[in-house]
Amino acid sequence: MDTLLKNAFKMQIQSKEGFEFEEFIDELLLLKYGVDNYTPIRRIKDKGNDGTILSEQKILACYAPRKYSKADFETKVLGAKNKEGDFEKYQKNWKTEFPNWEIYVNHEVAPEQLTLIQGLDGNTSIKGIDQILMIIDELASNKKRKLASYLGIENFFIQDYIQDIINDLLNATGIEDNILHFDRKTLVPPQKKIELNFEQEDWDGMNSEMLLVMEEFNTIANILSGYEVDEINTLKRRIINDYNKLSGNFKERLYSLTEQYTREYGNLKDDEYGKCVKSLLLYMFEQCLIGKKTDKEQL
């Protein structure tokens, strides 16, 4: 994950408290383990069980306060006068069948938290925000995107994809680059370029698709603004050269290059990745770098 996406996940997770955090952990672990290996548990009268990882014989606890307190954490785990802690409930109700116990927290693990958990009787462990982010990073891209949607940060996920695509294209090329310019004053509306490059029966479909991907053009422009001029030109030259190696009309080349890049750098089954690849290619198309140019653009 790039820094922006990682920070977006981190902020959203840290904002989850109480049952909301438990629900997030359920969503995360269902994606990681699947429905056959992870069982969510009801929120009340759970007998010290906030979730069960069947494949690891592990019972979970969750602690997500608005503000961390050492005393509150100890009460959560160990209990207090006339109040059972989560670990005592686990020992009483679950330990025989599930010998492993773990607690998830919505913040960085403090040294005293680690010491307390490691000192408990049994196979115990703790995971904080850093470990949770690592679990997310190891998810398949389609599952990671689903989690981003659950947290309402899909836009950051798309930005991460586009950033990865650009970096992969830059790392894969050894092309000697020439400076490539385009003059925005000479650009024409995308519809005219579509009519020049596509058969008439494809015009309506491509106009709709162009409108859809143009939503990502500002994202692409913002990402590219963070690169050096020579890197941007190398990226453009790579795409132009790969496009020119293909045969067929523009539509055939566009779809072939989209599939090629998705296969080489992503996953053909990941529709969102393919959409991001096509967005980048159509961004170059809109800049007149690939495809036929109108008379005005050729001047």
Score class of each variant (00 low, 15 high):
L4W: 12
N7F: 14
K10I: 01
K10L: 11
Q12S: 13
I13M: 03
E17S: 12
G18R: 00
F19G: 03
E23K: 11
L30C: 12
Y33H: 10
T39Y: 03
I44C: 06
K47C: 04
K47D: 06
N49F: 10
S55G: 04
D72G: 07
D72I: 08
T75Y: 01
K76A: 07
V77G: 02
K81I: 15
N82Y: 15
G85E: 04
D86V: 09
F87E: 04
F87N: 06
E88R: 13
E88S: 15
K89I: 10
K89Y: 12
W94P: 01
E97K: 09
E97D: 12
P99S: 15
N100F: 07
E102F: 10
H107W: 00
V109I: 14
E112W: 13
Q113V: 13
L114C: 10
D121R: 06
N123T: 11
I129K: 01
D130A: 12
Q131V: 08
D137C: 09
L139D: 05
L147W: 03
Y150F: 15
L151N: 07
G152T: 01
I158S: 13
I158E: 12
Q163V: 01
E176F: 00
E176Y: 00
I179C: 00
R184Q: 12
T186I: 13
V188H: 01
K193Q: 14
I194V: 11
L196Y: 06
E199D: 13
E199A: 13
E199S: 11
E201T: 15
E201W: 00
D202Y: 06
M210K: 05
M210F: 15
E216M: 11
E216D: 15
T219L: 09
A221G: 04
E228V: 02
D230P: 04
I232H: 01
R237S: 00
R238A: 02
I239G: 09
N241G: 06
D242L: 00
F250A: 10
E252S: 12
S256N: 13
Q260M: 10
Q260P: 00
G266P: 07
N267F: 10
D270R: 08
G274N: 05
C276H: 02
K278T: 05
L282C: 07
Y283T: 00
F285H: 06
L289S: 05
K292Q: 14
K296T: 14
E297M: 09
Q298W: 04
Q298H: 05
L299D: 10
